[in-house]
Amino acid sequence: MKIIARVLIILSAALLVVGATMAFASSASSGSGGIGPGRDGFERRPPAGAAEGSRPPGFLPGGAFGRGEGRGDHEGGRGMPAAFELLKNLVIIAVIIAISTLISRLTDGLRPQRR
């Protein structure tokens, strides 16, 4: 029972975040006209005869991926080995840990010893 209550609290907090984002997306898009994110972030239908080039790179009509391309910007450049994405993120995280550990050791060394 306690666990269910805690899960509900977590889900409620997540719902707050989602609600705020939806509200922000709605208000941000209500002012903009023409093609682009419409209500709730969904794409407005382009005018008849619009060029296919208006589509973001990496996606084909119907949601299929272009050959050798990924989903969005964070998947790395074209022609890059797929495993590079994973390695890149691993290296970024390792560098963050290394830098923070170094800073932590330096600050610990500078801090006066307590008696």
Partner: peptide, 22 residues
């Protein structure tokens, strides 16, 4: 329906998540 705003936000939050998890 397809939402390019969500797609962009998904990419951005993914990049931020890598930094925050680090």
């Amino acid at each position: 329906p397809r939402g390019f705003l969500w797609r962009g936000l998904h990419s951005t939050t993914s990049n931020i998540a890598v930094l925050l998890i680090g």
